[in-house]
Design a protein around this nucleic acid. Sequence first.
DNA 1: AATACATCTTGACAGTGTCAAAATGCATCA
DNA 2: TGATGCATTTTGACACTGTCAAGATGTATT
Lengths: 206, 206
Amino acid sequence: MSLSSSQVTIRPSYHHGDLRQALLRAAKQLIAEAGIENLSLRKLAERAGVSRTAPYHHFSDKNDLLCAIAAEGFRRRHQSAAANFDNRARSMLERFHDYANGYVQFAVDNPEEYELMFGRSIWKHQNSTEELRHVAYPCFQHQVDMVRCWQDCGVISGNNALRSAQVIWGALHGIAKLFIDGIYTDTAKIEEVTHCAIDMFVIKYS
Amino acid sequence: MSLSSSQVTIRPSYHHGDLRQALLRAAKQLIAEAGIENLSLRKLAERAGVSRTAPYHHFSDKNDLLCAIAAEGFRRRHQSAAANFDNRARSMLERFHDYANGYVQFAVDNPEEYELMFGRSIWKHQNSTEELRHVAYPCFQHQVDMVRCWQDCGVISGNNALRSAQVIWGALHGIAKLFIDGIYTDTAKIEEVTHCAIDMFVIKYS
DNA sequence: AATACATCTTGACAGTGTCAAAATGCATCA
DNA sequence: TGATGCATTTTGACACTGTCAAGATGTATT
C-alpha cells in the first residue's frame, strides 16, 4: 500500500495517512492525463491504492470532490492575480495587460482545471459547495475591484465597474473557452487575439 | 407503438417510419427537460418506443447523435443571423445591435442546445462529425464576413476582420456562458451587460 | 484493557454505452 | 408468385459507472 514519499506532514494519522490530500493529488493527475470526463471515482481510488468506496469518507460524492479541486484552482488563480495587481514595478496599464494575458494563459495552460472551475456542472443546480463559493466569490469580487481601479486611473473606459468587469471577464472567458474547446484552432495566435481584446478596452490618448 | 401525429412525410418507409427524426425530436425534448448530462441513449430509446440499441442503426454512437442535434442548432442560428443581417429595414448599426443581442438571447434561451453546440465534448479530440463541421464552419465564417462589413461601414472599430470577429464573438460567447452556467446570476441584466459590450466595439462619433 | 469512533473494505444495485448475434419486416427480382 | 437480400430492430451480454449498506479494521480515549 506504499505511502507516498512526499508525506512529510506530522504523521500518518490514520490508516492511510492523509487520504483526502492524496485523492486530490491523484485526481488532478488523472484529470490532466485524460480529462475530466474520463475521471471516475473508481479509477481514482485504485490510483490512490484504496478500495472503491474509501473516497466517500472524505468527499460526500463525486461533485464534492470536483468542487474541492475547483476551489484549489480559484485559490491559485486569485493569488496569482493579486500578486500581479500588486506588482509596483509595473504601470497600471501594464498590470492590466498582465492581468488579461495571465487570465487567458492560465485557462489555456490548465484547460481541464479551468473547465472544472467554470463548467456548468459545478455551478448549476445548487451544486456548488460552501467551500467553493467561499473561495470563488472573493476571486470574482477582486476582478471588479481591479477594474474599478483601472477605470479610476484612466486606463480603461467605462464608468460602471461591475458592468465593465463583467464584459471584460466575459471577453477573456469567451476567448479562452473558444481556444480550449477547440473552436479557435490557431493556438499560436492566442496572445494576438487577447491583445486585440485588450486594445478594445484600453483608453487611447492620441 | 403509436406513430407520432406530425408524421406527414411521404410514408413510413420501414418498421418505425422515420426513427432517426423521431430520435432527434425526442432527444431535444429530453435535453430540454433534464439537461444534456442526463440524456442517456437508453432513456431516449424508451421515449421513442424502441429497444436500447435501435438508435445505433441511425447514429454510430452517442457523440454522433449529439453532433446531429448541434448541427441543427447551427443551421437555425445561421439562418437567424443571416435574416437579421439582411434586414434592410434596419441600419447597419442597428443590425450590429440586433446581431449581438440576438446571439446572447439565443444562447440564454436555449442553454442546453447552446452548450451542445459549443461544449468541449463535441469539438475536442476529433469528435466533430463531418456533417457538423460542414454546417458550423460557414456559420463561423459568416460572423467574420459580417464584422468585415461593419468595419467597412465604420460601425465598429478595428481593421483586422478576423481578429475583431474573434474578439467580439469571444465576448458574446463569454457573457452568454457566464450567464448560462450560473456564474452571472442576475439574469435581468443580460441585455444591459450585452449593451455594455456592444458599446465597447462600436465607434462613437462625438 | 475496554470502549468509541474514524476509517476502510466487501457486496450489492441500478444505471450507462456499446458490441454480437439473432429475429423481423420490406422491396426487389426470378 | 415466391425467394432472396438487405435495412431495421431486438435480445443478450459485457465492462464500466456512482453510490448505498453492512461489516471489518485500526486508532484514540477513558
